[in-house]
Amino acid sequence: MSVIGQILNPIFEAIAGLLAFYYGLVHDYSLAIALLTISVMIVLSPLTIKSTRSMLEMQRIQPEIKKIQAKYKNDKIAQQEALSQLFKENKVSPAGGCLPMLAQFPLLYVMYEVIRGLSNTVGPHNTASPKYISHTTLLYHNLIASHGQMQSLGINLSETATRVHGFTSALPYYLVIAIAVVLQYLQMAQLTRKNPQAAAANPQAQMLQKYTPIIFAVIYISIPAGVNLYFIVSALFRIGQQELMYRHDPVLKKHLQASAEARLAGTEAIEHSKPAGGGFKALWSSIKESAEKEQEPKPKPKPSGDFGATGRKSNNNGYKKPSTGGQKRPGQSRPRSPGKNDKRGG
């Protein structure tokens, strides 16, 4: 076992133990995974509620951030001051952060590893040898009896879609993936739909949002169906949580009201929010454009001493350089894909 595996082993055992407990109650793999997911989501919810709230607050002032960036294009210091002022005035209370968000990824790894570990088989005869759980649990006995297969909902939850042969037998696996992707998209869309004002400021991001589920789908076809079930249940949980927040959270209610008023004030801004024609084609051309930009030879740093103590690479930062094809942010080092920097993950 790798070093990381050894460190995480207690976590694997805790999650697998909980799964075994739920399996003992409901005698069904998919139900047990669903219950496990809901437990994990409930434990995480104080964190996710807070960070969703602050994320939406940040999103709300996004158009103003853009304005400031455009206004102080050539003066980095003034830009920073104006932005600090904006954050203070709007009392954006960041509750989350990138670290908690990144902490979700190890959790996915834990789920993946637990399901792989439980369906572990050894030897030439594929003898089941589930890891991480006590030999006295019902889950252990049933896994031994089924040779590590987790049959539920007509599929083997420990199997990945790409390893199933035959169209009809693989179909349910791909169906599970499709449901996971659609739900993930809906959860994402739910966050942006409620705030068309901010979305209008960033049409390109909106367009890309439509295609990012494809990236997820590529990952999903190579992981066990049980992990995809985890995605499905957690997306459902998040959608419900977000909807409840929109209805009952006082901060978000105010936020929605403000954005609704702004919508009445300027309907034409929303018109622009629609991606400019030809969905996939436009996306492709934007990717091509950014690739071409990358190939452009970068200007050599001139020791002009115009910025900072050293003046190094001042040109790369574009503080003085005249805008190259719609470069929007002076602080942006690589103008590869202009105009969609503001909503990027942190």
Partner: peptide, 10 residues
């Protein structure tokens, strides 16, 4: 991969 989602960054 995160394009289009609101940023969680502080």
């Amino acid at each position: 991969s995160r394009e289009g989602k609101p940023s969680p960054c502080r």
